[in-house]
Amino acid sequence: MEYLTHLAVLVGIYSILALSLNLVLGYAGIISVTHAAFFGLGAYTSAILTTVYDLNFFLAALCGVLVAAIISLFVGTVLSKFRGDFVALGSVGFNVIVWSVFLNVQELTRGPLGIPGIGRPNLEFGIWNYEFSSNVSFLVLSVIFVALVYFLCQFIEKSSFGRALKAIREDEEALQVFGYRTLHYKLAVFVIGAGLASIAGALFASYITFIDPSTFTINESIFLLSVVILGGLASNRGALIGALALVLLPEFLRFVGFPSDIAAQMRQVVYGVMLIVLMLYRPQGLVGEYKL
């Protein structure tokens, strides 16, 4: 039971990451390979603020959103100078920079040692104080966050803003001729996506209670891309299903019963093959409608 709760919390955190990346990739069509950097910025900001400055989790998470938003505004502006596929390449560079900062600015991040002893979120109103210390209570908290992010994404999709994003994805230059300053739209969605990813980071840090730079590498950004593409681009439901499938799939493979000396490798192989087969037969993802 504890194991299932743990998986459910992870699915929740990855759902937030997938939903936020879907805004950027699925709706606006920006191939961003740097989502893990914003995930990490949220995690580190809130971890440092709660452990060193003893700030409440929720305030620290809010600060994480601000940090991610400001940095993403800058990064987005730089990336907007790139054309086409070079955006993806440029964003990889940014992920590497952020990861090296986590690794090397040891006074702040403790480098490869990571930050241990991050507290669980607690709510205080006067004498009433509640800490989300059990995994079940943390699960409830994550579900609330996932629901909020999901409704925000649905709200964006239904708005005129969401329609303009999709038009940017289809033909940015043509949309400009009809009076859209598309750069503003792209920056706005990039900042929103980064802010939401940082919330997932704060939740992750406080749930695991330990973070180190190895979680926030390009590998993680690529994993998040596959979650969104596999679930279905430009579909919020797809992002949720993608997170569910890709977090749980490796866990199911534990029970397949490979010989123990090659079990770990076989799980990776099967996992990879399943991704390839799915992309061959459902290029639009499990529930998506849009093809890259």
Partner: peptide, 28 residues
């Protein structure tokens, strides 16, 4: 040059609706 993977209706609505980023978020 159409917005290919948008519906016919959305191709028209997109040139009729709000152009400002902030205002467009709060408009359907």
């Amino acid at each position: 040059r159409l917005f290919e993977q948008l519906s016919v209706l959305d191709n028209i609505l997109v040139v009729l609706t709000e152009r400002g980023v902030f205002a467009s978020l709060f408009e359907t």
